[in-house]
Design a protein around this nucleic acid. Structure first.
Length: 951
DNA sequence: CCACTTCGAATTTTT
DNA sequence: TTCGAAGTGG
């Protein structure tokens, strides 16, 4: 899309300057390119200055990019363009309020003013804390609302409601509601009845009438706990239909007091915020809007000759109305309803899909008491950008089919209506080879990695770029996930297999395993006997729970760890401590880099001590704060990111793991939505006894409104359209969502095979700071010291027999009523019957041995420990028929002997092998000493190759 | 065809 | 804990 003449559709847009334009710009149609050309065109051809053109984008980042692009393509004076109004809605409103907005709160009847030092609360968590404080005070001062308060799940719920109302342009005033927006709260009766009748229409069956969709969904009514006086199920539901009379009754529920509650919380919160010199993002838009609404001279002065809005599908209703107030008649909105995936941020897809009715309605509202909008919208025109420069034709076709795939078996989806709304895109640029494949994997993550390794450098997969053909690289591949968690798990699996990878976008940095380990070391640094710290560190080093407990209780920490601790103590910055800890564990990834970055920057600027760093990390964990992890400098890596964060990007290969349909819509107890309006889902009542009841009226109304899977489909559309040539969909084998099945590609069932990639030597080099790198402890099974002849092993009886005997022994030690079934088991029973002391079966134990500066952990499971008075017996069952392996078993028992001798210092520890075939315990007279064990280690070739028995 | 039980999953992120 | 979707048995 770089140096090319605009196509005929784009030309249409660039040259159409006067009037109202709705531009349907699908994925890959050169939207940004066209907007910047249009901007230049306006400037170059008319008596217009940059200050006359308002260009609104979705993010600050996009605004910056757009500005740079315009500066580079436009011949206009650069310095004038630097200050041009190219920004987000919030940036614009912030500017307006800080220059003209001091008295804006007066419009709502609030005496507080907006000051020039007002602070924007950007951090969501911080605002939530502030809001909870406010709610506590509020309910003390307004005790008559306490039943409403009691029905909430948590106080913060109301803040979400307030935001949602503000995004719709519903604002409170001192003694009511701004303009006539109160009616919005009541809901839309006509529309509700339309929806209700449609959902309640009986379905024609083969012989008789079937239940309506609504009647089917009402089956759960019986199992609810409704407040006293709710109608009986039989009164609401007939055989095939739901009572219309009761539904109308439910819609017309008296909500005056509920509205008062919401109003007072809303209004008092605005006052509370202003009183503390705070403003949030919602209120920023609200105040700018009411200011421009009320102050006619100011509005007249600010209005722009040209307005362009990018990503219009992500705007909300109040932003649409605000644009109309700011406009002189030349408005151009660009977007794609198919890519609207931010409704949880209160974006309204209807701004685009119902553009014309909305603009007429809004202008009508804005002109009711005063003529604010003096331009005509009658010459409103639509422009469709119809050429896609990104994807191969197969991918474009597939993406459009995905928009009409049913989400559940009996979803009532009007496929033809959706198809009619889609502007079909023509593939105009990408003629390269293309493939779309579905896979079913037992383990999707393994499968994805297998597929990536399969296609990279594979001559079957060719990508055309700049007129040349080449093989695929890792950096051509993006895995687009629905949820961050899946992405993080895939990331760590890829790292484990040494497949070059990077996670793009925000992650909860301080909840990652490397960070938790680092936090543990900080705790130990602050307090050498920190149990929370040691528990994490020791568990990570492979110590069992019991061992960890006894180490912490006895404060006899492993020597190598104490040495490491003293090395850390000598360091003076958090960053260098973090580096050293990560080096010790050979952790080196984008995540560890970022942790070091963050710690260096926060502790560098504010000189934090260890305690403050710990509390900083803890707060980040509690708040789930996310940080962007930068991957660009990592070179040839494949990318993992969420679909939401991949908006606007493109990749030669896109892999799309199954995204399960999720619901849980509106989990709040006070709900506001179309067309039902403001409703209480839960009702608190102290009669007959205090309880939070379900509201039967809400239940009925919510069942009438169909589950909406449209955004789920749009999300898939966005994901699919990121792909240029290759698209791979994956699903698990067990539960595939209907949405996946209905996409209509037959999945290939494959058993993936992971081939670890050889990582170039240079990437393996670690940063070495402050001395020698301590190698990570090596975990070995005690069997790696033993040399067992396999045939003699189980004496012809086989592994299964041995396992059965062990399993019987464990069960019998716990429960003497279990019956032996073989001679060996009978011998075990005799042994256990003869022991009088305490019996402990199957204890995991670990013996740390320091070997040439490296810590080796031998682990094993002791079959039985018998503690009687001052003597501790270790007993290991062997089902061998002969004693040919006895010397090897002695090695194993010697390890156990040293572990238990360390724990029971005052008791006499003895080790026995119990040969179950003969029923004979053999005492180990002389266990190997630690030095003898070290001698055995030397003879192991294992340590030189790094093939550990880690699992 | 319907009523009931069982099963699995419980976001996304910008200003 | 809560809620759909899908599976099951009358």
């Amino acid at each position: 899309m770089v140096s090319r003449e605009p196509n005929r559709y784009q030309k249409q847009l660039i040259e159409a300057l006067e009037g109202i334009y709705l531009v349907d710009a699908g994925p890959g149609t050169g939207k940004t390119y066209t907007i910047s050309l249009r901007y230049s065109h306006i400037l170059e051809n008319r008596d217009v200055e940059p200050d006359d053109i308002l260009l609104i984008t979705f993010t600050e980042n996009a605004a910056q990019n757009m500005k740079e692009r315009i500066i580079n393509t436009c011949s206009y004076d650069r310095s004038a363009l630097r200050d041009a109004p190219i920004s987000t809605f919030h940036g614009l409103c912030n500017r307006i309020l800080r220059t003209h907005g001091f008295e804006a709160p007066e419009v709502l009847g609030i005496d507080e003013r907006i000051t020039s030092t007002i602070q924007v609360i950007e951090n969501e968590i911080l605002e939530m804390q502030e809001f909870r404080n406010f709610m506590t005070i509020f309910i003390e001062r307004h005790p008559h609302f306490r039943d409403y308060y009691a029905s909430l799940h948590h106080g913060g719920e109301m803040l979400n409601l307030i935001r949602s109302l503000a995004s719709r342009g519903i604002f409170p005033t001192r003694d009511g509601w701004f303009q006539d927006c109160e009616k919005e709260l009541d809901g839309d009766y006509e529309r509700f009845m339309d929806i209700f009748r449609q959902a309640n229409a009986p379905v024609q069956g083969s012989r008789k009438m079937k239940q309506s969709f609504l009647r089917k969904r009402m089956n759960g009514y019986k199992n609810r706990c409704f407040s006293p006086g709710a109608p009986h199920f039989e009164d609401i539901c007939g055989d095939t239909q739901v009572s219309e009379h009761l539904s109308i009754n439910a819609f017309n529920e008296d909500r005056e007091e509920l509205k008062n509650f919401v109003h007072d919380v809303y209004f008092c919160y605005i006052e509370y915020m202003l009183g503390r010199n705070y403003i949030n993002f919602s209120f920023m838009i609200m105040f700018a809007y009411v200011l421009l609404f009320e102050n006619h001279t100011l509005r007249e002065r600010i209005r722009y000759r040209y307005i362009m809005i990018d990503e219009f599908q992500d705007t909300n209703e109040i932003q649409f109305k605000l644009s109309l107030l700011l406009c002189r008649g030349n408005l151009c909105v660009v977007g794609d309803w198919k890519q609207s995936i931010f409704s949880f941020q209160y974006a309204s897809v209807k701004n685009i899909t119902e553009f014309e009715p909305r603009i007429l309605k809004y202008i009508d509202e804005l002109n009711r008491d005063h003529r604010r909008i003096d331009y005509s919208v009658d010459n409103f025109r639509q422009i469709h950008l119809m050429e896609n420069y990104r994807s191969a034709p197969e991918i474009i076709d597939f993406s459009e089919r995905a928009l009409v795939a049913k989400a559940t078996k009996d979803e009532d989806l009007d496929i033809d209506a959706v198809k009619a709304k889609i502007t079909h895109l023509e593939a105009a640029g990408n003629k390269g080879p293309s493939e779309i494949l579905s896979y079913s994997f037992d383990d999707q993550k393994e499968g994805i990695l297998w597929k990536i390794n399969d296609i990279v450098d594979n001559p079957d997969y060719i990508f055309h770029e700049n007129g040349k053909s080449r093989l695929l690289k890792y950096c051509d591949v993006a895995v687009l996930v629905r949820k961050r968690k899946f992405g993080m798990e895939l990331l760590s699996l890829a790292e484990k297999h040494d497949i070059p990878v990077a996670y793009e976008g925000g992650i909860e940095l301080f909840r990652t395993p490397p960070s938790l380990l680092l936090l543990a070391w900080f705790r130990i640094l602050k307090n050498i006997s920190s149990a929370r710290g040691w528990a994490v560190v020791l568990e990570n080093a492979g110590y069992s729970l019991e061992m960890t407990g006894s180490i912490i209780d006895g404060k006899n920490y492993p020597l190598d760890m104490l040495e490491f601790h003293s090395r850390l103590s000598s360091m003076d910055t958090a960053g260098s401590i973090a580096r050293t800890v990560f080096d010790k564990y050979s952790l080196d990834s984008t995540i560890t880099d970022r942790i070091i970055d963050v710690l260096e920057s926060v502790s560098g600027t504010s000189r934090m001590n260890i305690g403050q760093i710990i509390s900083f990390m803890e707060q980040n964990i509690d708040n789930g704060t996310t940080y962007d992890v930068d991957s660009t400098r990592r070179g040839d890596v494949f990318r993992i990111q969420t679909i939401h964060s991949a908006k606007g990007l493109e990749y030669p290969v896109v892999i799309l793991p199954d995204m399960d349909v999720s619901h849980q819509a509106g989990n709040s107890s006070i709900d506001f939505r179309d067309p039902s309006g403001l409703r209480q889902k839960k009702i608190y009542s102290s009669d007959p006894y205090p309880f939070i009841y379900d509201n039967w009226r809400y239940y009925l109304l919510s069942k009438a409104v169909d589950m909406d899977y449209d955004e789920e489909r749009r999300l898939r559309y966005v994901a699919i359209t990121r792909a240029q040539n290759y698209l791979f969909l994956t699903a698990g084998c067990s539960s595939q969502s209907q949405l996946f099945i209905n996409l209509g590609t037959e999945p290939v069932v494959t058993e993936p095979e992971i081939l670890p990639v050889q990582v170039p030597e240079s990437d393996m080099n670690r940063l070495v700071v402050g001395g020698v790198v301590q190698p990570a402890p090596l975990k070995l099974s005690c069997h790696s010291l033993m040399n067992i002849a396999p045939s003699a092993g189980e004496g012809g009886k086989g592994m299964e027999y041995g396992t059965a005997v062990h399993s019987f022994a464990q069960r019998y030690a716990a429960d003497k009523t279990v019956r032996p079934r073989t001679p060996d088991e009978n011998n075990v029973k005799r042994l256990l019957d003869s022991l009088d002391g305490e019996l402990i079966s199957e204890i995991e134990c670990i013996l740390p041995i320091d070997h040439e500066g490296r810590c080796i952990l031998f682990s094993g499971v002791i079959d039985l420990v018998h503690i009687d008075g001052d003597s501790v017996d270790i007993i290991d069952y062997k089902t061998d028929r002969s004693m040919s392996n006895h010397d090897e078993y002695v090695k194993q028992l010697s390890l156990y002997y040293h572990v238990l001798s360390g724990i029971y210092k005052d008791k006499r520890v003895q080790a026995y092998i119990y040969y179950t075939a003969e029923g004979r315990p053999v005492h180990i007279e002389r266990p190997l000493s630690i030095d003898e064990i070290k001698g055995l280690i030397n003879s192991l070739s294992l340590l030189n190759s790094d093939a550990t028995s880690q699992k």
